[in-house]
Design a protein around this nucleic acid. Structure first.
Length: 681
DNA sequence: ATAGGGTTAG
């Protein structure tokens, strides 16, 4: 034992050195030599220091050497495990402490144990801890209560959470914040904002952490007004803006569609981390700016940040949107090389990327390799088969899923029904549409009805489709009537068609495509007055057609084509190619469907317009710039017209190429004069 | 001595 006079010195020395993780072992040795370790709180300090430095093993050695660990040592050891992401061990140690007896757990013991339960979403363990804490008289402890409140809220037990909150004798900023984020994570954003108002009414001042919760709630509601006013409030009060707050601001602006504001916040950040970069990438990807998202992925690496799985998921989403298979593949490779765990979210993103880039088989291979699959993963894979027009596979996957303990939801059925509608599987469609309601208790929504009407009407069961619409509890929207109308058009049900057309016009559609469908209907019925009227309506309303465009990738660069687009540098070669092809096509029976062109023009001008549809320009460009036998992938934002569909089939045969076109609804794999959709689109 | 509330993704 050192002389008593030395102790304060030792204490100061040990305490200062213990903050430096490299010096902990030396401090440890000194503490043993000097007997300092025998002081009541010293082992706790040492264990905590080892815990902070991530050296759990050493923390345990110190603890195990204690003849009679005090509560501070127990707590320090438990906290060390919580800090090092071992919530399972936290509960383990907690139970060991209880069963070994000798110490009385205190408020922080319960607090930590409850936090571990929250991380594990283990409500049962939480209940045990709660009852133990209450037995020992901690029911009014703010720390225990807010930890319990958090556990309930994060596990979706909102009623219990509110109960705990209301029983608290004293509510401080932390308990309010817990309640607010609890409401947010239970999907009750309005209640979250309301709670904040109540908190202020009780005179509690907010800090930057509670603002994060509020911003998340605003983001969920896409309420930029409230979000921006919170932002302003923070600036006025000169609150500390740390990375987390700023990232929440970026997310709030992005989710509300204000990308430029999100970008301003991002550019002004003094400290950026991987999360802030990821949130910006996600902002761009979610708003359809694939190019910007991918640029940011590159830029973050220039700034020394390695993309984490969140950034990769967003980048994969961007690849899906534009059909960037090459980059998607190399991102997948990056994931494998970095040995990132391909969890469900990343796995589903990879599946979605392969599928939307036309590689259905790769998508399935990844799906089969996932170690666990949740509902979203299954839904995504079923949707893959759907957009590729493979209804039978979609169904068999659905049946496989039914055998798991997962419960199909409305998204599952939306994917399944759309798969049926893309494959013309009428009987299966009828059967599972009814099953959805009867066996699964799911009320079909707009999407499900639209698929069913489309399926029935196009298969010729127009009246049945019409009857189905009559039984709907919700008011049928434009999509449903349009599905019925195209069925009427195909099957020449002119009388019903005119009635449906009237219904559609009453709903004031804003899409010019809908008007041309209606106009075509009237033209088939030889109702020229109506055709004229619609033409006048279209002019009067000054409606612009959504410009159709097609994308094709070459050497990592994307080339975009509009219809009749002469701006591309290779325009002349492209046109020459298309004319050459048309000549060949006519020899094997191609007749341009000039009736699809609505304008009052000479026939040869109409033919020319068809020839210059964006997908054909993109395909010709692809043919010109890729070697024989290479597959061509074209992404189109609108649907492929009937004439292009015919034409591309012939082009695939003449050029002996596999041509894949992804349009607004689905994939068309053209090969040797045929299309995978079998003209069913 | 230690402890409760916060950011991004399919």
């Amino acid at each position: 034992m050192p002389p008593a006079v030395c102790q304060p010195k030792w204490a100061r020395f040990v305490c200062s050195v213990i903050e430096d993780s490299r010096a902990i072992p030396q401090a440890h040795a000194l503490m043993i030599l000097t007997g300092f370790l025998a002081r009541p709180n010293s082992p706790g300090r040492l264990i905590a220091a080892y815990g902070r430095s991530g050296n759990l093993a050493a923390a345990r050695v110190v603890f195990d050497a204690l003849p009679q660990p005090t509560i501070s040592s127990w707590n320090a050891l438990i906290i060390a495990h919580l800090r090092n992401d071992s919530p399972v061990d936290v509960l383990h140690l907690y139970r060991r402490m209880i069963s070994e007896g000798g110490v009385r757990p205190d408020s922080s013991t319960f607090t930590i144990a409850l936090k571990a339960c929250t991380q594990l979403s283990d409500l049962d363990a939480g209940e045990q801890i709660r009852s133990h804490a209450y037995d020992l008289g901690f029911q009014n402890d703010v720390f225990v209560s807010s930890s319990l409140l958090n556990l309930y809220a994060k596990c979706g037990k909102l009623i219990e959470a509110v109960e705990v909150f209301e029983r608290m004798p004293r509510r401080d900023l932390v308990s309010w914040t817990t309640m607010i984020t609890g409401f947010y994570s239970a999907g009750k954003s309005i209640e979250a904002i309301d709670s904040y108002r109540k908190m202020r009414a009780e005179g509690v001042e907010g800090d930057e952490i509670v603002m994060v919760g509020l911003l998340q709630a605003c983001a969920a509601m896409e309420d930029v007004r409230t979000g921006a006013s919170i932002h302003g409030h923070m600036i006025r009060l000169d609150m500390r803006m740390d990375v987390v707050v700023e990232t929440s601001l970026i997310d709030m602006y992005a989710k509300s569609g204000y990308l430029s504001l999100a970008n301003v916040v991002f550019e002004r950040m003094r400290n950026k981390n991987v999360v802030s970069w990821s949130s910006l990438i996600s902002a761009y990807a979610q708003n359809g700016f694939a190019n910007e998202a991918l640029l940011m992925l590159v830029r973050m690496q220039d700034f020394g940040f390695l993309p984490d799985s969140v950034a990769l998921v967003s980048a994969l989403l961007a690849c899906s949107q534009i059909g960037f298979l090459k980059l998607g593949k190399s991102l997948h490779g990056f994931v494998v090389r970095r040995k990132l765990k391909v969890g469900m979210i990343l796995g589903t993103a990879v599946i979605d990327m392969y599928s939307k880039c036309g590689s259905l088989l790769s998508a399935r291979a990844i799906f089969d390799r996932l170690s666990s699959r949740d509902l979203i993963a299954w839904n995504a894979m079923i949707a893959c088969y759907g957009i590729h027009g493979n209804g039978k596979q979609a169904l068999s996957l659905f049946l496989e899923m039914k055998e798991t303990e997962l419960k199909p939801d409305d998204a599952t059925f939306a994917s399944l029904m759309s798969a049926f509608s893309h494959s013309g599987l009428v009987n299966e469609g009828r059967r599972w549409f009814n099953c959805m309601k009867i066996d699964f208790g799911l009320e079909p929504g707009e999407k499900h009805y639209a698929c069913m009407v489309d399926l029935l009407a196009r298969a010729g069961h127009v009246e049945e489709a019409f009857d189905l619409i009559q039984t709907m509890k919700i008011k049928p929207g434009i999509a449903i009537w349009v599905a019925l109308l195209s069925g009427c058009h195909i099957h020449k049900k002119l009388e019903l068609g005119e009635y449906v057309a009237e219904n559609i016009l009453k709903l004031n559609p804003h899409d010019l495509g809908v008007y041309s469908l209606v106009s075509n209907m009237y033209a088939s019925a030889r109702n020229w007055n109506k055709v004229q009227e619609i033409r006048r309506m279209m002019k009067m309303m000054g409606m612009k057609k959504t410009p159709g465009y097609s994308l094709v990738e070459l050497d990592g660069k994307f080339h975009a084509f509009l219809a009749e687009d002469n701006s591309h540098p290779e325009y002349l070669q492209i046109m020459a190619m298309l004319e050459r092809l048309e000549c060949e096509m006519r020899k094997i029976g191609y007749i341009p469907k000039i009736e699809l062109v609505l304008h009052d023009l000479q026939d040869d001008v109409k033919e020319r317009m068809l020839l210059c549809h964006s997908e054909r320009l993109a395909i010709a460009f692809g043919l010109l710039n890729t070697g024989a036998g290479m597959r061509i992938l074209v992404i189109k934002n609108l649907r492929v017209c009937e004439d292009c569909h015919d034409a591309i089939k012939l082009i695939s045969r003449i050029t002996n190429r596999e041509i894949v076109v992804r349009d607004a609804k689905r994939f068309h794999h053209f090969n040797d004069g045929a299309c995978s959709c079998g003209d069913y689109w």
